[in-house]
């Protein structure tokens, strides 16, 4: 009876935003995790602390920082607006940034542990066999750390899908434009439309469950084939 009335845009937007945010986290988090795991330098622990901060701070604080960083008055905001006529705040790309910011620590933690779990002797062995650093990373380190990174990726995606506070701060709550699933649910509850809220909650729960199950299957099929490491 209510499927017809339900606007499915928040669902679509949530999946789009969380997917892109996960890609962004991967692009930023994997190199950073490798760097934290393999290189020791003076500021390493500070960098680690900095990128753990989003796990500790309330999402609204993160959203506020992000607002300061990309708002229309900020350096980045002014630059984008003057040069390209772009505004980030209160658009869906801002939601991607916010989701990525809250989820990247999970990925970094998992990926760093995965990289640290790779025996450095293996990399040294590859070095003596004439391989360059990039080649070693892609043929030895990454394939061996892949499981941990995949697990971190799933966590990061889940966190991105569920983000509320940071997204609301920088992307706002514009139905049909920036209203993601968690915000739509909040909206529905506020407006007293409980049956809508129920439906949305049910949908996102089921979809998240199925997606997590599928990702786990995929992990096992891709990585479990052949080598029996554990």
């Amino acid at each position: 009876m209510f499927m017809g009335q339900i606007e499915l845009f928040p669902l679509y937007l949530s999946f789009k935003v969380s997917f892109l945010a996960t890609l962004l986290s991967l692009a930023l988090g994997v190199p950073l995790a490798w760097f934290l795991a393999r290189k020791s330098w003076l500021g390493r622990d500070w960098l680690d602390a900095l990128f753990t901060l989003p796990m500790v701070l309330p999402p609204t604080v993160l959203g506020y920082y992000l607002l300061l960083a990309i708002g229309r008055r900020s350096m980045i905001g002014t630059f984008l607006e003057e040069r390209f006529g772009l505004t980030l705040v209160f658009t869906w790309p801002a939601a991607v940034l916010a989701s990525a910011l809250v989820s990247v620590p999970l990925l970094i933690k998992a990926a760093r542990a995965a990289f640290e779990g790779v025996d450095p002797n293996l990399e040294d062995a590859a070095r003596t066999l004439g391989k360059g650093e990039a080649s070693i990373f892609f043929t030895i380190t990454l394939p061996l750390a892949w499981r941990g990174i995949a697990a971190g990726t799933v966590l990061a995606w889940a966190r991105a899908l569920g983000d509320f506070g940071a997204t609301l701060m920088v992307a706002g709550n514009i139905p049909g434009q920036t209203q993601t699933m968690p915000i739509a649910i909040y909206d529905a509850v506020q407006a007293g439309r409980l049956s809508l809220a129920n439906t949305l909650v049910l949908i996102i729960t089921l979809l998240a469950l199925v997606t997590l199950w599928a990702l786990n299957q995929l992990n096992r099929d891709i990585l479990g084939r052949g080598h029996s490491r554990d």
Binding site: D119, N121, L122, D124, A125, A126, R127, T128, L129, G130, K131, G132, T139, I140, P143, L144, G226, H227, R229
Partner: peptide
Amino acid sequence: LAPGRRQIGFVFQDYALFPHLTVAQNIAYG
């Protein structure tokens, strides 16, 4: 010289075989 340009073969104490590669792939790696 970088390790790979020294023409030195190294057998590690715990062998450091690549666990995700087969025997043939391990041997052919270099």
